[in-house]
């Protein structure tokens, strides 16, 4: 397992490095002079030149990339334009809000999606199975910001059960959790559908396997066969899917954070783009990328922990 984890971690470092190269190329290829954008139209040529030297834009491109690459690995993402604070610090301040949002989105989707998928698979072709199928596709099809707006209107504005905006009082976990319910539902509801479909499909496949027939032939209880023997195999593709799906959840989080006026990386990027705060955009995107890669690493490690064949095959 350790061997597998080390190899997989090495692969993650390579992926992040390639992502950095792509991100850097993107900034480099965007037309326009970053210094001119940063200083605005009334700056003099001398001021722009000074900023360019300060930002290292006068050096050859490969040195610029190396500087970006080396300082990023050391956690230095530059300074943001408006307040001159370190980008890393600004992004990391917002990161816990987004992490909490995505984590609770995953909790929703896993806590509802997995039992629903199993339940439907065991009752294959029944009315209940079809109903779960239709509902799953429905929640997948509705965009998360639509769910966010309706959830806001129904539960916060009309029924007044839950707060409408913000992330709750700092230092008060109760209030923070209450403020998380609606946004995380908006982020996670579509994933309830994805996971229910995925778990159902892989459960059906796994219940057909010959080792399930063996387990039945030894008279093991049906519950144990379904929720232990079959589910442990059926869960594997779902974990991988969730790892990849974090990317989509991150983009749903942008909408949820805007609609519910929550702090978070999505809101940060949105504001940074509106104010053309490019270092902040770059930094936030890079942090998101690292987050995405780390979550996929975690997903692969979970799969490795569950499936001995993956560990020895890597």
């Amino acid at each position: 397992m350790l061997n597998y984890a080390v190899k997989r971690l090495g692969l993650s470092v390579v992926i992040v490095s390639v992502a950095m190269l792509l991100l850097f190329s993107m900034i480099y290829l965007i037309p326009g002079d970053p210094a001119a954008v940063a200083l605005g139209p009334r700056a003099t040529e001398a001021m722009r030149e000074a900023l360019r030297i300060k930002m290292g834009l006068d050096k050859p491109v490969w040195i610029q990339f190396w500087n970006f690459f080396a300082s990023a690995w050391q956690g230095d993402l530059g300074r943001e334009v408006l307040s001159d604070r370190p980008v890393a610090q600004v992004v990391l301040e917002q990161l816990p809000y987004t992490l909490a949002l995505i984590a609770s989105g995953i909790i929703w989707s896993v806590a509802i999606g997995i039992p629903l998928g199993c339940w439907a698979a065991v009752r294959r072709s029944s009315f209940a199975d079809r109903l779960v199928g239709v509902l799953s596709v429905a929640v997948i099809a509705v965009p998360s910001f639509v769910i966010a707006i309706y959830a806001l209107l129904i539960f916060a504005v009309t029924l007044r059960w839950l707060p409408a905006i913000g992330a709750g009082e700092p230092g008060d976990p109760g209030s923070q959790i209450v403020h998380l319910i609606l946004p995380s539902l908006a982020v996670g509801l579509g994933w309830v559908g994805y996971i229910a479909r995925m778990v159902r499909a892989s459960m059906l496949e796994s219940l057909e396997a010959s080792h399930i027939r063996t387990a039945r032939a030894f008279g093991l209880p049906d519950r144990q066969i379904t929720y232990q023997y079959a589910l442990k195999i059926a869960i594997l593709p779902t974990v991988t899917l969730l790892g990849v799906g974090i990317g989509q959840m991150l983009s749903s989080a942008v909408f949820a954070e805007i609609v519910f006026a929550r702090p978070g990386v999505g809101k940060l990027v949105y504001d940074a783009i509106l104010t053309r705060n490019y270092p902040l955009v770059t930094g936030a995107v890079l942090v998101t990328t690292v987050l995405f890669v780390l979550i996929n690493l975690l997903a692969d490690l979970i799969v490795g922990a569950l499936d001995p064949r993956v560990r020895s095959g890597f």
Partner: peptide, 24 residues
């Protein structure tokens, strides 16, 4: 029937590759 399967009638199946659960 479940009470009989296993203790009274046991079975050895054809496909040894797939007859055991791979993750336990």
């Amino acid at each position: 029937l479940r009470e009989i399967r296993g203790p009274r009638i046991s079975t050895v199946f054809q496909d040894p590759m797939g007859a055991l659960n791979p993750v336990f």
